[in-house]
């Protein structure tokens, strides 16, 4: 039995296999509609989420399985003061597989140590979000036809943006990847990411505040939201929230086949006018998210 807590627990071969399964599901959905008949997925969401939770629920239903769970901590025994360890130990007696989102970093790891069922980390604070990364990798693979030899720009909140950290860690293992990190000084990528990933492997990357100057070099532009819930201080949030807004005008200098991605939800960092641009991939990303989660559930439940 395995869990998925950090994307780096998966080898590139395993990631490629998950992508292959997801692509097969897209092509032959009927072949998978009964694969999880009689299995239960528990969604333990200690922090609000619409997209990720619904994506997992839709994934399990499309595999013929059932879903139990809660969508906020106040609706669970946590409100009575129960620990993550105890909650998970109990839930793993009912569910075949557990999906957990928690505001505290490391909570899903604690869960995986105590659970008798596989645990999937659906986001732990600003730390990791491996299934978003799998979604992003499937999106890049489908839209660009490869996962190597490209320049990937990340823009916005690179400090607290867990999707950014996970995707950088995952993509750094492919050949010929360059990163362009675009953010205000206060939201730069954390020191541990530089030290443990970028500098450790000797990857090529630049840090800049000027999105316009680097736009023509990018094959992927990964936009992020400045997240209010990650700030201890409201004034800092207000000052930084509008640092970068992507508009059709800013895209004029971009490559014709560049891919604009966003983990969603967006607030205003991508103008709605960009949605009709063929380079906008963020709604396709949502749909890929369900398929890669289906592949992951199948793999962890060992039914493929």
């Amino acid at each position: 039995m395995r869990s998925l807590i950090d994307i780096l627990e998966l080898s590139t071969e395993e990631i490629n296999e998950l992508i292959s399964i997801a692509v097969d599901i897209i092509d032959n959905p009927g072949a998978y509609s009964e694969k999880c008949r009689g299995k239960k997925l528990a969604t333990l969401f200690f922090e609000p989420s619409t997209r990720t939770r619904l994506s997992f629920e839709a994934a399990m239903y499309e595999l013929g399985g059932n879903v139990i769970g809660f969508s906020e901590a106040s609706g669970s025994s946590v409100a009575k003061g129960e620990s993550v360890s105890d909650t998970v130990r109990a839930v793993s007696c009912y569910a075949d597989i557990i999906v957990m989102r928690h505001p505290k970093e490391g909570a899903p790891l604690v869960a995986s140590m105590k659970s008798i069922s596989p645990v999937i980390n659906a986001g732990d604070g600003g730390h990791n979000h491996p299934t978003q990364t799998l979604t992003d990798l499937l999106t890049i693979s489908r839209e660009k036809g490869r996962l190597s030899n490209m320049t990937v720009g990340f823009c916005g909140d690179l400090k607290f943006g867990r999707t950014v950290h996970s995707l950088i860690s995952a993509m750094s293992r492919y050949d010929g990847i360059k990163f362009v990190l675009i953010s205000p000084d206060e939201l730069q990528i954390p020191e541990y990411m530089k030290q443990n990933v970028l500098d450790k492997i000797g990857l090529e990357y630049i840090e800049t505040k000027d999105i316009g100057a680097v736009m023509p070099t990018l094959d992927i532009l990964y936009m992020t939201r400045v997240q209010r819930e990650r700030f201890f201080n409201e004034a800092d949030y207000v000052r930084l929230k509008d640092s970068y807004i992507l508009t059709p005008d800013k895209l004029k200098n971009a490559k014709k086949d560049m891919c604009v991605m966003h983990p969603l939800p967006r607030v205003n960092e991508i103008s709605v006018a960009v949605d009709d641009d063929p380079r906008a991939c963020y709604f396709k990303q949502v749909s890929y998210g369900k398929y890669i989660r289906m592949a992951l559930i199948l793999k962890l439940l060992e039914v493929v």
Partner: peptide, 21 residues
Amino acid sequence: KNPRCITSTEQELPQIFRLTD
């Protein structure tokens, strides 16, 4: 010391640190 770490609220957890460098 990270206030966002799960060990800040669940204090019965063992404090485990690994050598990374």
